[in-house]
C-alpha cells in the first residue's frame, strides 16, 4: 500500500484556485519532486497535506488512514514531518531543544513530572536526548547541540529543520524548498543527505524545489504544477521532454 495517497484535492482562497485536482501516490523509499513556477500552488499542497488548511474536496491518506480532516498536530503524530520554505525554527531554544520539541509529544511523562523531579521524567528526557542526538548526527549537527539556531548559518538551519522533522519519526517527509538560499557546495551536501535519508529511513519524500538539477537528479517521479493544475507527471526524462512543461517554463517558442 502507498504510504501517502492524495486523491483529487482542491483548495481555493476566495476566487483564487490554488489547487485543482491534485493527486499523488508515494511509496516507501520514493522521492517525488514537485516543481512549477512561483504561485503554482506548491506550498499550498504541502499545507493541505499537513493539515494547516483543510482541503475543499478530495482525500489525503497516510499509510491507509484518512487524515483529511484531522487536526494538524495529530497528523504530525500519525507520521508526517515537514520543513518550511522560510525556515521556522523555535527561537529561544537550543538546537537540541528544537528537535526535542518534536520528540516531546511522545515523551511519557505528564504535568506532575514537568513540575517535580520525578525519576520517570529524567529517564524520558534521557531517552529523548539520545534519539534527538541520533537525528542531529544524521544531519551532521551533533557538535552544535547546545548552540542557538539564530547563530548558525543558513545551511545549518535548514539541516536542523530536517533533523527536527525527522524526530517526528515521519512516514512521509515534506521538504519545502530545502535548497533555497544555499551555495552550490551546500546544495551538493544536501542532495547527498536527502538521498541517504531516503535510503536509510525508507520513508516517502515529497520535495518542492526550484533548482531543477536537484529535483531531476534525485526524484523518481516529478509533478509539474502551473496555476494550481498538474500539467505533467512522470519520470524526470518524460517530464523534461513534455511540451507543456517546456511551455510553462520557457514560454511558447516563437520560431
Amino acid at each position: 500500500m502507498a504510504l501517502l495517497k492524495v486523491e483529487h484535492i482542491y483548495k481555493s482562497f476566495g476566487g483564487v484556485k490554488a489547487i485543482q485536482d491534485f493527486s499523488i501516490e508515494a511509496n516507501r523509499g520514493e522521492i517525488h519532486g514537485i516543481i512549477g513556477p512561483n504561485g503554482a500552488g506548491k506550498t499550498t499542497i504541502f499545507n493541505v497535506i499537513s493539515g494547516i488548511y483543510p482541503a475543499d474536496e478530495g482525500k489525503v491518506l497516510l499509510d491507509g488512514k484518512d487524515i483529511t480532516r484531522m487536526e494538524q498536530h495529530l497528523i504530525s503524530r500519525e507520521g508526517m514531518g515537514r520543513t518550511f520554505q522560510n525556515i521556522r525554527l523555535f527561537k529561544g531554544l537550543s538546537v537540541l531543544d528544537n528537535t526535542m520539541c518534536a520528540f516531546d509529544p511522545r515523551s511519557r511523562y505528564g504535568v506532575p513530572g514537568s513540575l517535580l523531579p520525578l525519576p520517570k521524567r529524567y529517564a524520558e528526557e534521557k531517552r529523548g536526548r539520545e534519539i534527538c542526538m541520533g537525528y542531529l548526527k544524521m544531519v551532521g549537527l551533533e557538535s552544535y547541540a547546545q548552540e542557538k539556531p539564530e547563530n548558525m548559518s543558513y545551511g545549518y538551519r535548514r539541516r536542523l529543520e530536517i533533523a527536527r522533522a525527522l524526530t517526528c519519526e515521519p512516514k512521509v517527509l515534506l521538504l519545502d524548498e530545502p535548497a533555497a538560499g544555499l551555495n552550490p557546495v551546500e546544495v551538493g551536501e544536501l542532495t547527498e543527505l536527502i538521498l541517504r535519508l531516503s535510503r536509510e529511513l525508507g520513508f516517502a519524500i515529497l520535495l518542492i524545489e526550484h533548482r531543477l538539477e536537484l529535483v531531476m537528479n534525485i526524484s523518481q517521479i516529478i509533478h509539474v504544477q502551473n496555476f494550481g493544475k498538474t500539467i505533467a507527471s512522470g519520470t524526470p526524462g518524460q517530464v523534461r521532454s513534455d511540451p507543456g512543461v517546456i511551455e510553462a517554463y520557457l514560454g511558447k517558442e516563437e520560431c
Partner: peptide
C-alpha cells in the same frame, strides 16, 4: 517556548 516562538511550526511538530 515553541508555542511562543511559532504556533504553526509547533503544531506541525505534533505539539497540541
Amino acid at each position: 517556548i515553541a508555542v511562543r516562538s511559532d504556533e504553526l511550526a509547533a503544531k506541525s511538530m505534533g505539539i497540541n
